[in-house]
């Protein structure tokens, strides 16, 4: 009966043909836009990736936020406030980019709060000293830039455009972090020690930010096919290592990897094995801060419910009053 009422369903173009046309657009480097037809799997894949990225920005405000009230100088306090504000802005554009795929911010936040959606596991590590603030800017933002520069050419238009904007701000944060590290590394012995300790704790987690080895990365194949991704996790990780080691040398700090060596033949740094057991343990809940991060996000949302309700109720009263006048 439904078929008789809606004859267009019978005449719907063949899914395989649509998918072929979609793949042809991707292969021709034409950006996919929200109104374009796309396979349901692609839509879900992009929602997952963009919202995970948005959650990372949003949750990422918390560890650095802990240091706003303890920033050592007024200039550093202002810069840290501005950085965290940028992160809130990034989260806002990314949630909007996810909404172009037919989800809502409420839905994506609910998935975060229920634990269904993930955020970058790096934020499950604690931010213990001021040098951690420098290291996060230098390494965590540095790694994020390597990932995000690659994503500026991703196939989904709204995501690619968000990345272009975000990369500009991230590179500013990275320079700011490096500048904090430079000050510490050239400072008093206890500052240099603080800087080295922070590097020791953040180095391996920063390398893990690029995700599992290509062979263990189940989503990679489809991500390449759809040109969501253009470089492998390992290629990006190598680029980050090659970029960062000379910076560590400049600071007079050393990364905690006895196997690190320059390889003349490949023109890259060789580095030691990553402890993937630790990575998965932290992802699955055994980080020092997993519970604190999620509790903070849930409480902010729950405690803010009455505020959002008040704003809606007031807007509704205004709208009704306007209608009465009209």
């Amino acid at each position: 009966m439904a078929g008789q009422d809606r004859p267009e369903l019978v005449a719907a173009p063949d899914e395989t043909a649509l998918e072929a046309a979609f793949q042809a657009r991707v292969d021709a480097e034409t950006r996919i836009e929200p109104r374009d037809w796309m396979p349901e799997k692609y839509r879900r894949f992009m929602i997952r990736q963009i919202s995970q990225h948005a959650h990372s920005e949003y949750v990422g405000m918390l560890p650095e936020g802990n240091w706003i009230t303890r920033a050592p100088t007024l200039r550093r306090k202002a810069a840290l406030l501005a950085k965290i504000q940028d992160e809130a802005g990034h989260a806002a554009y990314l949630y909007s980019a996810a909404e172009t795929l037919g989800t809502t911010r409420d839905q994506t936040l609910e998935d975060l709060h229920s634990g269904k959606a993930k955020y970058s596991s790096i934020f499950n590590y604690p931010v213990l000293t001021w040098a951690d603030i420098g290291t996060i800017g230098w390494l965590v933002d540095g790694a994020a830039i390597v990932n995000q520069v690659a994503l500026c050419r991703t196939s989904y238009g709204p995501y690619a455009r968000a990345m272009v904007r975000i990369c500009k701000e991230e590179s500013f944060h990275q320079r700011q972090g490096f500048e904090i590290m430079t000050t510490l590394a050239h400072g008093a012995p206890e500052q240099k020690e603080m800087a080295q300790d922070a590097l020791n704790r953040w180095w391996w987690p920063a390398l893990m930010m690029f995700g599992p080895h290509d062979a263990d990365s189940p989503n990679s194949e489809i991500a390449f096919k759809w040109k969501v991704k253009r470089q492998s996790n390992d290629e990006l990780r190598q680029r980050f290592v090659d970029m960062t080691i000379p910076q560590a040398d400049f600071l007079g700090l050393s990364v905690p990897d006895p196997d690190l060596t320059w390889n003349e033949t490949t023109g890259h740094y060789d580095f030691g094995p990553i402890d993937w057991d630790e990575f998965w343990r932290v992802v699955k809940g055994d980080g020092l801060c997993n519970r604190d991060r999620l509790d903070a996000r849930r409480s902010a949302h729950e405690d803010g419910a009455w505020v959002r309700e008040a704003a809606m109720a007031h807007a509704e009263k205004k709208r009704a009053a306007k209608q009465n006048v009209a």
Binding site: M61, I84, A88, G304
Partner: peptide
């Protein structure tokens, strides 16, 4: 910071 009732208020 990070604990506001809505992201726009954090900003």
């Amino acid at each position: 910071c990070g604990h506001g009732p809505i992201m726009e208020e954090d900003i």
